[in-house]
C-alpha cells in the first residue's frame, strides 16, 4: 500500500526537503538510528534513507533527503497529498543509547536531520546533548530549529563564516573535547569526509565515536551484501550489523570508493530522467 505524504517542507529549494509520511506501523516500531528503504515508481530503484523523526501517536515518520540521483529527484517531484509507492522498515540496528553524561552530536548536510533523531533519543534518556552542526554556507544549514529542541547547547559553523563560527565542525569539536572532559561519546552523521574527519579528531582524545554509514544498499534486509563495509579489518553488513559503527575502526576510503561504484550509470539515469521531465 502506498505511503501518503502528509506534509512537505522545502529546506533548500530544489535540493533538500522534509517529508512527513503517514506510516503508522513503521512509526510504532522505529527508534533513533533506524532507516527505511523507499521506491518511488514501478520502474524505480530501492534507496535507503535514515528516519529523521517519528510520532508514534500520529503514526508519522519524517525523512529528509538531498537530491543526488533519479530516485531522490523523483521524491522531490512529489508533493503533500501524493504517495510514495514503497516504504519499508524500520531497518538496521537502533542507536545504542544509555544515560551516561554528555554526548556530542555532530551533523553535516542532510545528516543533521538524521542526527536530530539520535539527539532526541539521548535527550530523552537524560544525557546532556551538545549539538555541533555545519554547512558550507548559511542557506545550506538545515534542521537547526528542530535540533535545538533536543540540544542543551548548539554549536554552529559555516565554511564561509556566513553563520556561526567560520570553519569546520571538527574545529568546534576539537575545542570542545579539549575543555570538556565529561563527553562520553561523539556521534557523527553526514558526508563520508566529514565522518572520517570527526573520527580522526576524536581519536587522540580516546572518546567513543559512532558514525552512521550510508553505503549503497539493494534490498536493505540482509540478503545481498551490497552494503558491506570494513570495520576493524572485518567485513560488516551495514543493513543488519549497522548502519552505526565505531568510527575509529571504519575504513572510510573503501566506503568512499564503493559509494562511487555506479557513478556513470547514475548519471545516465539522471540525465534521462531530466530530459524526460524538462528540468
Amino acid at each position: 500500500m502506498p505511503t501518503p505524504i502528509l506534509e512537505k517542507e522545502s529546506l533548500i529549494p530544489g535540493r533538500t526537503s522534509k517529508l512527513v509520511l503517514h506510516a503508522p506501523q513503521i512509526a510504532r516500531n522505529a527508534h533513533p538510528g533506524h532507516f527505511v528503504m523507499l521506491r518511488m515508481s514501478p520502474d524505480g530503484e530501492r534507496i535507503p534513507l535514515t528516519i529523521a523523526d517519528t510520532d508514534p501517536e500520529k503514526g508519522t515518520i519524517v525523512i529528509v533527503y538531498l537530491v543526488m540521483g533519479t530516485s531522490t529527484a523523483l521524491l522531490e517531484d512529489l508533493k503533500a497529498g501524493d504517495s510514495i509507492l514503497d516504504v519499508c522498515g524500520p531497518l538496521g540496528k537502533p542507536t545504542h543509547i544509555e544515560k551516561k553524561g554528555t554526548v556530542v552530536c555532530v551533523g553535516g548536510g542532510t545528516g543533521i536531520a538524521a542526527m536530530h533523531h539520535i539527539a532526541k533519543g539521548h535527550w530523552r534518556a537524560g544525557n546532556r546533548v551538545v549539538g555541533v552542526i555545519g554547512a558550507r554556507t548559511k542557506d545550506l544549514l538545515l534542521f537547526e530549529k528542530e535540533l535545538s529542541s533536543f540540544a542543551h547547547e548548539l554549536l554552529i559553523s559555516t565554511d564561509d563564516g556566513s553563520y556561526g563560527r567560520k570553519g569546520l565542525v571538527t574545529d568546534l569539536l576539537r575545542e570542545r573535547l579539549e575543555t570538556d572532559k565529561d563527553v562520553f561519546e561523539v556521534v557523527a552523521v553526514g558526508p563520508v569526509p566529514m565522518m572520517a574527519a570527526v573520527a580522526e579528531t576524536t581519536r587522540s582524545f580516546g572518546v567513543r565515536t559512532t558514525v552512521s554509514l550510508n553505503p549503497i544498499m539493494v534490498d536493505g534486509i540482509g540478503m545481498c551484501g551490497a552494503c558491506r563495509v570494513t570495520v576493524g579489518g572485518k567485513t560488516k553488513f551495514a543493513c543488519v550489523d549497522g548502519p552505526e559503527f565505531d568510527g575509529h575502526q571504519v575504513d572510510f576510503a573503501e566506503l568512499r570508493r564503493r559509494l562511487g561504484a555506479f557513478r556513470e550509470q547514475e548519471k545516465i539515469s539522471l540525465d534521462q530522467y531530466r530530459s524526460q521531465h524538462g528540468n
Partner: peptide, 26 residues
C-alpha cells in the same frame, strides 16, 4: 559482488532494462 546482489539487481530491479528501469547492474 555477491550473486544475490547481482541477480537481485537484474531480476527484481530489471537492470537488464536500464535505464528504462532505474536500478543499474555493474
Amino acid at each position: 559482488f555477491s550473486a544475490n546482489e547481482y541477480l537481485t539487481r537484474v531480476n527484481l530491479g530489471r537492470a537488464y532494462d536500464f535505464p528504462n528501469h532505474d536500478t543499474p547492474a555493474f
